[in-house]
Design a protein around this nucleic acid. Structure first.
Length: 320
DNA sequence: ATCCAGGAGTCCG
DNA sequence: CGGACTCATGGA
């Protein structure tokens, strides 16, 4: 395949415009599972204009990730029903980077999960059936980076999601690394190493409250120190043990732990039952005039064993 | 204006 | 262990 070098440019305060590339990029095709809708996945990813961790245009999504070799920018498209195409926009790209991105996309879109049992389950659950019919093929979109997932959950504690996105945007644009390509800026989430060195005031001026500022800097420090890592949590091979380990982190309570088990660590029985968004979605689906109680949700979800995370995610989707 | 938001830590009995 | 209180600011 024809390749030509195309460098990512570290973003400078002044916008530099790159020429529009007319190159042939290295590509790789991933086969997709049954019960898959690229469109539905992008719909979820596009839920906020303030989301700076990817860029969506015309049924394509671009994302910058960083591996040991350095940053890699890729674009996903869906040329046929049975495949996702990964296009590597910065070249040359190493064999290792291609493998790493393939693995990343597999995780990000949760392509390994066979949804057939979940859809089967919804046949006897009218509430879920409505959602799986409406959003057929939606995958549980992950937040593969543990630090990002935990920060996002902490940011979302006790404030509305719109404002959480505002705080996330400020956090990313102030402390994340960015690169430009083809005139567009792509961001990496701030790293624990950088955030661990911040002072409270650095976050307070972004309108974080004192709690969020303390929680996020404290989290960054324990992760930088290697006291918490995604790999270690996964190697526990136990949702109960992983949940306990997460809840030892200051600022990580039951909701945050469950949220991260669901959005990052891939536990399909994770269930953030305290989640206000979940409550609101259930209220709407049930057409009730009040929110369901925890006891009522436990009753409603009695048949969701093993699929609580997917049920929750489809309920989130219903709020968009 | 008023209430609420994809909670968590602390204190108190 | 369970309940009340506090944090704090934008959105609707």
């Amino acid at each position: 395949m024809f390749r030509q070098a195309e460098a990512l440019t570290k973003a400078k305060p002044t916008n530099s415009v790159s020429p529009v590339p007319t190159r042939t990029y290295h590509q790789k095709t991933l086969s997709v599972p049954n019960e898959f809708s690229f469109h539905e996945c992008l719909k979820f990813l596009a839920r906020s204009e303030k989301e700076k961790m990817h860029v969506i245009k015309a049924e394509r999504v671009r994302k910058l990730v960083k591996f040991d070799d350095g940053p890699v920018l890729f674009e996903l498209s869906h040329p046929t029903k049975t495949a996702i195409q990964i296009c590597f926009l910065n070249q040359p790209v190493s064999r290792a980077a291609i493998a790493a991105v393939s693995e990343y996309v597999n995780d990000w879109f949760d392509l390994e999960t066979d949804l057939a049992p979940f859809y089967q389950l919804t046949e006897t659950d009218q509430l879920l059936k409505n959602l799986t019919t409406r959003y057929y093929g939606l995958r549980l979109i992950k937040i593969p980076d543990l630090f990002e997932a935990l920060c996002w959950a902490i940011l979302g504690q006790q404030i509305n999601v719109a404002f959480a996105y505002t705080l996330k945007q400020r956090f990313v644009e102030n402390f994340g690394e960015s690169f430009t390509f083809d005139g567009e800026i792509y961001w990496l989430f701030p790293t624990p190493e950088v955030v661990a060195e911040l002072q409270l005031a650095d976050l307070l001026r972004l309108q974080f409250n004192r709690q969020k500022a303390e929680y996020i800097i404290g989290l960054a420090r324990v992760m930088r120190n290697g006291e918490v890592s995604k790999q270690d949590l996964l190697e526990l091979n136990s949702i109960v043990a992983a949940r306990e380990a997460l809840m030892k982190i200051r600022g990580v309570g039951p909701w945050t732990a469950s949220y991260v088990l669901m959005r990052c660590l891939g536990f399909r029985s994770a269930f953030p039952i305290e989640d206000i968004g979940l409550h609101n979605a259930l209220q709407r689906q049930l057409n009730w005039t009040r929110k369901p109680t925890i006891a009522e949700i436990k009753s409603l979800s009695a048949g969701w064993n093993g699929w609580q995370a997917y049920a929750t995610f489809y309920l989130y989707r219903s709020l968009l």
